[in-house]
Amino acid sequence: MEINNIIDLSIFQMIAAYVFVILVLIMVKIRGISREKEIVISTIRMTLQLILTGYILVYVFDNISPLITIVIIIIMEAFAIHNIYKRTKTKLSNKIKKIIAISMILGTLSSLLFFLFVVINISPWYDPRYFIPIAGMLIGNSMTGISLGVTRLIDGIHSKKNLVESALMLGATPKMASKEIVDNAFDSAILPTINSMVGMGIVFLPGMMTGQILSGISPVTAIEYQIAIMLGILGSVALTVILFVNLGYKTFFNEESQLELEE
């Protein structure tokens, strides 16, 4: 059936979409790839999480409140930071964990507030229909960026330990000795965002733009929003990651500018 020219998916149609999951399970089974458990669990989690989110958003949209919006943002930030800790395979020191949290909070919130107040200029500022989806995109992409940055920074410091120590013995400061590692970590972290921008509009239509078009909004208006949000995502990822790498590398050095790595 259609509601306001939007096709409303029935239960049967939703179930039919899970055929794609079955196809993937068959493929990995035939190839002998042991991913069946992960695929099933991720599918179930995704379904339950989205259903729960849908009902929560219905309540939030019907009961607009600055307190509720702030609480949701705090939860999103906390989950993103926890997810970064969980994604990183190597052990993280308490110092670098603090840097990750500070970078995520400062980078994403400053980008979000600028986007809402200057780019869109929404009123009231806590309108959940704008605040929550935009915050989700900025925080989610920044989380991915920092996850890559953390891995590259830690791997770089460990793999190039001898080069860093040699530079320090020759009189270089910790900043100079680790500059190449920091630059590589930053580059690796923002590259996925840049690559996604290259093919956007020609190779694929992003989710936000597709959703707006399906809801009946003019494609031109949808494009305007998509351009704005992609630039916001780029800025948020870059700001968050640059904060992390420029503060994070310092956690590997002591007060005497000596390299200290936890075994």
Rank of each mutant, 00 (worst) to 15 (best):
I6E: 09
I15P: 01
F20G: 04
L25S: 01
L25Y: 02
I30D: 03
G32A: 09
V40F: 12
V40T: 10
R45G: 07
R45L: 12
R45F: 12
Q49F: 10
I51A: 15
I64P: 00
S65W: 10
L67D: 07
I70E: 07
I74Y: 09
A78V: 15
I81W: 01
H82W: 13
H82G: 15
I84V: 14
I84C: 04
T88G: 08
T88Q: 13
K89N: 12
N94I: 10
I96C: 03
I102V: 15
S103M: 06
T108Q: 01
F115H: 03
F115I: 07
I120S: 03
I120C: 03
I122M: 03
W125A: 10
Y130H: 05
P133L: 01
G136H: 09
I139A: 02
G140L: 05
G140Q: 07
T151E: 14
R152G: 03
G156A: 02
K160M: 10
K161Q: 14
V164P: 04
E165P: 08
L170M: 13
E180L: 10
P192N: 07
M197S: 06
M197A: 12
L205F: 08
A222V: 07
L231F: 15
G232L: 03
G232F: 02
S236E: 08
T240E: 07
S257P: 01
E260Y: 10
E263A: 09
